[in-house]
């Protein structure tokens, strides 16, 4: 899968689910991309680098989300 296609797919799928959740496990992303985790990681890394996705961490678990989405985003951005 080309990078642009993968990016499109991730944005569409994550936006679709936004009503119910804003944070996703890495596994959810590799399922959307239908790739082995190591392959998916290369694309996900690039998406984070381009700020298409952002990390969220509880300290013990990491998740991914679209920037600016979810309950905490408003409070935590340096407005």
């Amino acid at each position: 899968m080309e990078y642009e296609e993968a990016k499109e797919k991730i944005i569409t799928e994550l936006t679709k689910k936004l009503k119910s959740k804003s944070k996703f496990y890495f596994n959810d992303l590799s399922k959307i991309l239908d790739m082995k985790p190591r392959e998916a990681k290369k694309i996900v890394n690039k998406l984070v680098q381009e700020s298409v996705l952002e990390y969220w961490s509880s300290g013990s678990t990491s998740m991914y989300g679209l920037p600016g989405t979810g309950k905490q985003a408003g409070a935590e951005h340096e407005d």
Partner: peptide
Amino acid sequence: WKHGGIVGVFGYGGGVIGRY
């Protein structure tokens, strides 16, 4: 304390644990 956060340094997904 609130749970977790989106802070970090650019390109790193670990090493910083957001606490508010």
